[in-house]
Design a protein around this nucleic acid. Structure first.
Lengths: 210, 210
DNA sequence: TCCTGTGAAGTTCTTCACAGCC
DNA sequence: GGCTGTGAAGAACTTCACAGGA
């Protein structure tokens, strides 16, 4: 994979969105697509799409656009989706429970293979077919199951402590649903804050100031 | 509220994060706080905090920092959180069900007062204490209950149609959990895409390319 | 003619650095 | 001394515009 430029954070996020659109196109039997058409479907501009795609090579055909299946393969490869990621869910409260059943991501790529929970009454059994372990077993199980991704769904007050435990267990990427934002991690690790309160408060702002 | 500058999208999102930190400080009895301390807690820089706050006035005390409770009140006012928003949840599949019980946002500000669902076997009763209506009643109920915010939790293929219905019903702000991104809406309306697949795929990228 | 790929220009966002005030 | 508020500088991102290939 020729990485001709640094791919920015924003570009990475958009690639994921392009990918979804391309998969839909592929399901509908489409062979090729132009940057303008992708732009229309994802609510962006043709120039933005081309700039983003140009970060990792030139494989469009001038005058004809991009080959849909080739572009899907390329983006999957860039994003590292061409392998399977074992994921740990930490926290089996109400939101953790719902995340364990939510399949918004592709199961063949991201698979929750272990759940960790503090409350001993919940551990030692399965939830939704996934074994539930005490949180103290994090390091042991993560190593055994090759887990490097985590979904953190504990209360905000426990966020820092749990994230630290996850780091110690070798988890290097986390989706943080705790609501606590900006938790510090070392440079080799990544935490993405997913914050529904912030999202809905942003809407409140726009509806108020308009 | 003196709006001295346009507040950018990014600033608005950060305000929400500052607010959460400030509330925690207030609960701990803190009276004042410096931009540097907020920055440390949210993982940002002091200059960024000051720039963001300067958008809507100057109320820090030089040499002393900001008054915590005053800043909370101001940010709540800026974000429009000083009133109650009635919210509609559209889609009562598994993820919709979990969103209806998830209280990641403040209930005194955002209150789900109606659920809408296509499947007639689910309508006409309550779920988690919230009445479930057929989706065709959207306009009628939204007007009756003064609903202008919506949480969309239907399958991606239905996203465009449901968002259009919500717009027609007078809903002007939506959290879009469908996974379909970039749905077009008129300029007076706002859709925020919340995309767990994109978030986790971004992590995959960073762990792969490192 | 159509559409890509890409420098250049334009815009937006962040960081710097310091005057000013407590 | 400590910390805010803010122009100015710098960095990052987006859009423009056009050369060039199919």
């Amino acid at each position: 994979m020729p990485f001709r430029k640094n791919i920015s954070n924003l570009t990475v996020q958009r690639l994921s969105c392009y990918l979804r659109t391309l998969r839909t196109l592929a399901e509908n039997g489409r062979i090729s697509v132009s940057s303008g058409e992708i732009a229309e479907k994802v609510g962006s501009t043709a120039a933005q799409i081309r700039k983003d795609l140009s970060c990792f090579g030139s494989f469009g055909k001038k005058g004809h656009g991009y080959n849909v299946s080739e572009l899907i393969t390329t983006i999957e490869n860039v994003l590292g989706l061409d392998k399977k990621w074992n994921v740990a869910l930490i926290g089996l409260g109400r939101f953790g429970q719902s995340l364990s059943v939510y399949k918004g991501y592709r199961n063949e790529t991201f698979d929750i293979v272990a759940i960790f929970e503090k409350d001993p009454s919940k551990t030692g059994k399965s939830f939704n077919g996934i074994p539930v372990y005490p949180i103290d077993d994090l390091a042991k199980i993560c190593e055994k199951k090759s887990i490097v991704l985590g979904i953190i769904a504990v209360p905000p007050a426990a966020a820092d402590e749990v994230i630290q435990k996850a780091l110690d267990a070798g988890i290097r990427g986390m989706l943080n649903f705790t609501g606590k934002c900006g938790c510090q991690v070392p440079p080799h690790a990544f935490v993405k804050d997913v914050n529904m309160a912030a999202e809905i408060e942003t809407l409140s702002y726009y509806l108020t100031r308009q």
